[in-house]
């Protein structure tokens, strides 16, 4: 049974009582909330996600609720709870859906040290995955959303999970998070996209989440083989430029974008080296999404 098979009131009831058990990539989450905004977010953006009816073990038990305390009467806040603890400061109540998304990302990046976790988008076509590590604001999520809009498989817009044993990528296809003007760019580029409610005034500005394609969600348990590591940069005045890059430098940039390379020691080095050895690496500057996608299509032919 997937989320779309249940009705909104049924989902609401489940979220407010025992919690909604779902698989998000390789992890089983149990989400509890009494907030209608979070229920709507899940109903609209996770329709193809399988509900674990009698899952006996949960990796990440999480809750998003109104923060208690006197402040709730002045400025209502939403609080994310993991494992009975509150790991970060509460946000304004209308940012609750974004808080859930960030909270789950944090659960993964702060705990999944059996994997090498890279802050990076990753998409796949024709069995060839492209890893796009880059700092926030470089346009990696925009490019990722553009590719997904044109039929690429979404593996993740934020977290590239590399299995230490064989260097393969475990997909974790969550809604794609876009910020500020990217929201309009992608809404125009991908008119049939389903977009969640826009959260205003977050630390990162305006944030909206885009529903991942059903097929990407259905295939979340099929690992992908990395074929390229590309460092994208949106630059308004340039043509599309794919510039070959030195592998040593690419390795170091992957380390910089990794959440837990420093913890993994030799294992982390070995797996990252095996990935970098096998892939081709490029810097990539682009201004037009269409041109960028053409270039990527050409790469994976």
């Amino acid at each position: 049974m997937i989320i779309a098979d249940s009705s909104r009131p049924e989902l609401r009831k489940l979220l407010a009582s025992n919690g909604l058990g779902i698989s998000i990539g390789p992890f089983r989450c149990c989400i509890k909330t009494k907030l209608a905004s979070v229920c709507d977010h899940l109903y609209e953006l996770y329709p193809d996600t399988e509900i674990d009816i009698d899952s006996q073990f949960t990796d990440f038990p999480v809750e998003v609720e109104r923060a208690p305390g006197l402040r709730r009467w002045l400025k209502p806040l939403a609080e994310f709870t993991f494992n009975g603890n509150v790991p970060f400061t509460p946000l304004a109540l209308d940012q609750a859906p974004a808080l859930l998304e960030w909270g789950i990302n944090w659960c993964v990046s702060a705990h999944a040290h059996h994997l090498l976790v890279i802050h990076s988008s990753v998409v796949e076509k024709n069995g060839r995955a492209i890893i796009m590590p880059a700092p926030s604001g470089s346009g990696k999520s925009t490019l990722c959303a553009g590719l997904v809009a044109r039929g690429w498989r979404l593996l993740s817009d934020e977290l590239t999970l590399i299995r230490v044993s064989d260097g393969q990528i475990l997909p974790i296809p969550k809604p794609i998070s876009l910020k500020n003007e990217s929201i309009e760019i992608i809404s125009e580029f991908w008119p049939e996209a389903i977009v969640g409610k826009v959260c205003k005034d977050t630390l990162k500005g305006r944030v909206a989440h885009f529903r991942p394609p059903a097929e990407s969600v259905r295939n979340a348990n099929i690992p992908a083989v990395p074929a390229f590591v590309i460092f994208p940069r949106y630059a308004p005045s340039v043509e599309c430029n794919l510039i070959p890059k030195e592998k040593g430098h690419a390795f170091m940039l992957m380390v910089e974008n990794a959440f837990n390379y420093h913890l993994l020691g030799v294992e982390g080095f070995d797996v990252l080296k095996s990935v970098i050895d096998k892939v081709e690496v490029f810097d990539f500057e682009y201004s037009s999404l269409d041109r960028a996608i053409d270039e990527f299509e050409h790469l994976v032919k």
Binding site: D59, H111, A112, H113, H114, N260, L263, L264, G265, E267
Partner: peptide, 12 residues
């Protein structure tokens, strides 16, 4: 994996 991940941190 939960135990393995804790082991990674302990080894570090």
């Amino acid at each position: 994996w939960h135990l393995d991940a804790a082991n990674v941190v302990a080894n570090k």
